[in-house]
Amino acid sequence: MKSIKTFAAVIALSVLPLTSFAQSISATGPTLDEAEAQIAAKAQALDASYTITEANFNNGVHMTAQLTQ
């Protein structure tokens, strides 16, 4: 029984670092390039990479991205 609890604890702790840093950020701008530049600057300030998850065009651009480390 002790080995099962230990195994479960190891699995839980090994998954934790993968999910410990996931942050969603957004930016707005008149063009795609300007909105993405804002996302890139925020990601660089946090020493993270980013994946754009959404972009809307409606009298400007609203972009959302997921930061990962």
Rank of each mutant, 00 (worst) to 15 (best):
M1Y: 12
K2P: 07
K2T: 11
S3L: 13
I4W: 11
I4P: 07
I4D: 11
I4F: 13
I4G: 11
K5T: 08
K5S: 10
K5G: 08
T6L: 11
T6Q: 12
T6P: 05
T6K: 12
F7I: 11
F7W: 14
A8L: 15
A8F: 12
A9E: 15
V10W: 08
V10P: 01
I11K: 09
I11N: 07
I11A: 09
A12Y: 04
A12V: 05
L13S: 15
S14A: 15
V15D: 09
V15M: 15
L16F: 11
P17V: 06
P17H: 05
L18T: 09
L18P: 03
L18V: 12
L18G: 09
T19H: 07
S20W: 14
S20D: 14
S20F: 14
F21A: 04
F21L: 07
F21T: 04
Q23N: 08
Q23D: 06
Q23E: 10
S24W: 08
S24E: 14
S24Q: 12
S24D: 10
I25F: 00
I25R: 02
I25H: 00
S26F: 01
S26E: 05
A27I: 02
T28Q: 04
T28N: 03
G29S: 15
G29T: 07
P30V: 10
P30H: 15
P30M: 12
T31I: 07
T31N: 06
L32C: 11
L32M: 13
L32K: 15
D33Q: 08
E34P: 02
E34R: 04
A35Y: 02
E36I: 05
A37V: 04
A37W: 04
A37H: 07
A37T: 06
Q38K: 14
Q38H: 14
A40V: 00
A40I: 00
A40D: 01
K42C: 02
K42L: 00
K42P: 01
A43Q: 01
Q44E: 11
Q44P: 05
L46Y: 04
D47M: 10
D47N: 15
D47W: 08
S49A: 08
T51D: 10
T51N: 12
I52S: 03
I52Q: 00
I52V: 09
T53I: 07
T53E: 06
E54I: 06
A55N: 06
A55V: 09
A55Q: 07
N56H: 08
N56V: 05
F57S: 11
F57M: 11
G60I: 04
V61R: 03
V61P: 02
V61L: 05
V61F: 03
H62A: 10
H62C: 09
M63D: 01
M63S: 01
M63L: 08
T64R: 08
T64I: 12
T64K: 08
T64C: 07
T64H: 06
T64A: 10
A65Y: 04
A65M: 07
A65Q: 04
A65S: 09
A65C: 10
L67P: 00
L67H: 04
T68P: 12
Q69R: 15
